[in-house]
Structure formats: C-alpha cells, structure tokens
C-alpha cells in the first residue's frame, strides 16, 4: 500500500478518488444529507487526536498507581478523567506490559485502532505486511522496529477483530524514578503504545 500512495500535484492529488470524494461531498451537501459544519466538525474531531493523548495516559499511570488501576480496569473512565473523549460505542482496553509480558496490537481484518484517543493509525499499521505478519511472527516484526523482547518474556499479540480498541501501557523505563510527569510524557512514543517498540529511555 505504501509506496503506491498517490502524490499531491499543485496542491491536489492525482488520485481519481480525490475527485470522487469531493464530488460525493458536494452532492451530499446539495441534497442536505450533510451540512458544511458537520463535515468540518468531523475533520476537526480527528485532527484534535494524536499519540500525545496516549502518552499522557501512560505517564499518569506511571506516576499514580490508582490511576493505573483505573486505566487497566476502565480505560474509558481514565481517559475521561484526563479530559479525553473515548470512542463510542467501541470498547477501549489498555493492556499492561510487565517485566515478564510484552503486548503487541494489530488488526488483521482491517486496521482497528483507538482513533478516538490516538488519532489516525500510522501507514505501517495499515500495511498488508504488518496485518499479515504481526500475528504469526510478532518477534520478527518487533525486531524490524528495533526491539527484541528477551526469550523469557511472554509476547501476547492482540488481534482487535471486533468491537474493542487496544492500547499498550508500556513498562516505565529504568532510571526515570526522579522524572516529572511532563518529562515522562516525552518518553512515550506511538510505537510503544502499539507495542512494536518500548518507550525512549
């Protein structure tokens, strides 16, 4: 898929689908099926989301054991507590890495991702290669991202096949005991929230 992507030309892509979605938009507005503000709100909604939200949830959980408990038992409530709007009606589950367990998230059937929290998934997450391989050879996939869990660490792959969106709560890096929450936020990468890697240290 990537590599095949159509490039912008003079501010507009050459993909015929760019014209088709503009056509669909114009027709839906003309017929009153959608309104301009509805489309704009919908664009703003997604633009407001990014992996920074996930980083905030993780850093707070690292600082505060009770928040971690809430994040793991009711991730939507935890997200609401930090002013985020978790997706409805999909469930949102956060899975915890420990010294003995490493979690990895994939969606083999499409590209389910906690978009309401983290925004759009990265291209590689949507790639046919990741979707095909992450379930069968998760360790090889993580090696490609520069991370190799030790053999005595259990790798758990989560294939989000239905109505749940998953995020990883990574392990807090060693030597960060004295860091403030806003410094910890900076360590949490998007890749570590999907589990293909671990946070910066």
């Amino acid at each position: 898929m990537s590599g095949h992507h159509q490039h912008e030309r003079a501010g507009r892509t050459t993909s015929p689908y760019a014209a088709r979605i503009r056509a669909i938009e114009a027709l839906l507005l003309e017929k009153g099926v959608l309104t301009e503000p509805e489309v704009q709100d919908s664009i703003s909604y997604m633009e407001a989301r990014s992996p920074a939200n996930g980083a905030k949830l993780v850093a707070r959980a690292w600082m505060d054991g009770r928040f971690e408990e809430l994040l793991l038992s009711d991730a939507k409530a935890a997200a609401l507590q930090l002013g985020m709007e978790p997706e409805h009606p999909a469930e949102f589950i956060v899975v915890k890495n420990t010294p003995g367990v490493h979690n990895l998230i994939v969606c083999t059937l499409c590209s389910c991702y906690p978009r309401a929290i983290l925004g759009r998934p990265p291209d590689w997450y949507k790639s046919f290669e990741y979707r095909s391989r992450a379930v069968r050879e998760p360790r090889a996939v993580m090696r490609e991202f520069g991370f190799e869990p030790p053999e005595d660490v259990e790798v758990i792959v989560h294939d989000s096949t239905a109505d749940v969106r998953y995020m990883v709560l990574p392990l807090r890096p060693l030597g960060t005991e004295d860091m403030r929450e806003d410094e910890l936020v900076e360590l949490v990468t998007r890749d570590s929230l999907v589990g293909v890697n671990v946070p910066r240290s």
Binding site: R136, P138, E151, I156, V157, D159, T161, A162
Partner: peptide, 29 residues
C-alpha cells in the same frame, strides 16, 4: 456476547518462532 479468547501461538502456527508461552488474544463472538 463477545469474548476475549486466548490461543497458544504454537497451536496456531506449526512454524512459530518463539517460546511456548507466547500467545495471542482475539475477540470472538
């Protein structure tokens, strides 16, 4: 009802590369 169902990777793939403890969870109706 939708369940999170666990599988041992070794039960899913004959050629699985990794420890026997590795597993996979999926959501199954």
């Amino acid at each position: 009802p939708l369940y999170r169902v666990g599988f041992r990777q070794a039960d899913l793939w004959d050629d699985y590369e990794g420890p026997a403890e590795d597993c996979l969870y999926a959501d199954v109706y």
